[in-house]
Computed example of a mutant assay.
Amino acid sequence: MATPTELGRARYSQVTSTIRAIVERIQQIWRGLSAAGVEEDLLGDAGAGIVTAVAEGQLTVAAAAQAYIAAQMAAQGGSAFAEASLVAAAFAGIAPDGGPLETLLYLPAIGVRQRLAAGLTPDEAMLGGLADMARYASTAVADAARSADQVAMAANPSCVAYVRVVQLPACARCIVLSGQMYSRSEGFLRHPNCDCQTLPLREREWPGVPTPRQLVGRMSEREQRRVFTVAGARAIGDGADVGQVVNARRGMSTAHVFGRDVQATTEGTTRRGVYGRRLRRAGGEFARVPGQRYARATTPRLMPEEIFRIADDRAEELRLLRRYGYIV
């Protein structure tokens, strides 16, 4: 049987390989676009192709989450049994901030226009737009994987916590959080393009995950200077605490939506959506917002992170996850 560390590496490899394949597909589509027409193109077939590729990637990594958590619990001597089944489709088509994926993946077109206005050449503007698109797509898929993993943890009564696993190369903000243990329902701190992962735990025990100091020891002097700055690397080398050198939370968030306290999404809230179908059977109300094609539920659909934050206990978590269509 594979060890928890080996299972974690396999999960990391699955997510990162899915992201690489999506970025390659985006690059193929992007080659056929021009700076002059990129905004129109991303509203048309090219944009639809990119959105489809990213949504399919989100579905792929989410669909593997429950099997991964079950394998982890079994490897740690627990039960692979889950009290509910994860709905992988509930994690596809949603941006990390809870908004529509289409909106997020249109932003690179705006970036291209801004670069042109700043005096960059069309080729330079398009190269920057491609970098933006790759970053947004990668973040959306990685977030879907982590979110699905946490929901699968909630569905498995054996899982009580998770530990943050950092893979090099990594930024300073992530390095100082390596090996930190959290309650399985605690939000995962991340930044755009973050590829850190959660290692689910059956019991509150410290696994063989490298500490920040150990990660720094594996880095070359050049890499340390790049990540921590020259002065920061020197301070760490002189014995300074890594966490004191780096502001661990700067740039991190738990995916708040438009600065509001409640983390919600409009995805899946039409009558045919994952949440909408369930709400319709329960007699819920729908209304059409001016400018939108379909009527949407008048009751917001909470994101998994918000459910974990407000639920008083595990029974309440499962009830809300079912209500909002993440598990059945």
Rank of each mutant, 00 (worst) to 15 (best):
V176I: 11
F81C: 00
M126R: 14
R9Q: 14
V262W: 10
I236A: 06
R277D: 10
R277N: 08
A311L: 04
V87Y: 01
A148L: 02
L104A: 11
A84L: 07
D312G: 03
A155K: 01
I110G: 11
L168M: 11
A90T: 03
Q114D: 13
E39Y: 03
D241G: 01
L43N: 06
A92D: 05
A71Y: 04
D195G: 04
A55N: 11
R115S: 13
E24K: 15
A235Y: 09
E285G: 05
C174I: 08
C159Y: 00
E203Q: 06
V216C: 09
S158Y: 01
R226N: 09
A82S: 15
G276M: 13
A53T: 10
G98I: 01
D312S: 13
I29L: 10
A240G: 08
R222Y: 12
Y182W: 09
I26Q: 05
V163W: 07
L130V: 13
G268A: 05
Y12I: 08
V209T: 14
W30D: 11
L43C: 00
L130E: 13
T265D: 04
Q114L: 15
R218S: 12
M73L: 08
L42E: 06
S185Y: 10
V245G: 03
R260W: 11
T229H: 09
Y294D: 14
V54H: 03
Y136D: 13
A10T: 11
V160K: 11
D143W: 04
G208V: 01
Q167L: 04
Y324F: 14
Y162W: 12
S178D: 12
P108N: 10
A65L: 00
E221I: 05
V274T: 15
F91A: 02
A21P: 07
S79M: 02
V160Q: 10
Y68H: 14
G44L: 01
A10H: 05
P300W: 14
F81I: 06
L321Y: 04
V257H: 08
T266S: 15
L320S: 00
R204P: 00
C159L: 01
Y182M: 07
E40D: 09
L130M: 13
V38G: 02
I327A: 03
A70K: 03
Q214F: 11
C159I: 09
G8I: 04
L7S: 03
H256G: 02
G291H: 06
Y294T: 09
R250F: 01
A84P: 05
R25F: 15
V242S: 06
D132R: 06
A75N: 01
L43P: 00
E39T: 13
Q167K: 09
Q214K: 14
W30F: 13
V141N: 08
A235H: 09
L101A: 08
Q150E: 04
V246A: 06
H191Q: 09
I26F: 00
A240Q: 13
C159A: 12
A248G: 15
T139P: 03
Y326D: 01
V274M: 09
G47T: 07
C194T: 12
A65R: 09
P200Y: 08
E221T: 08
A70G: 04
V257L: 02
R277I: 08
R314H: 04
A144W: 04
V38K: 02
V61C: 02
L120A: 11
Q180K: 13
T60E: 09
L130I: 14
G268K: 04
E305H: 02
E267N: 05
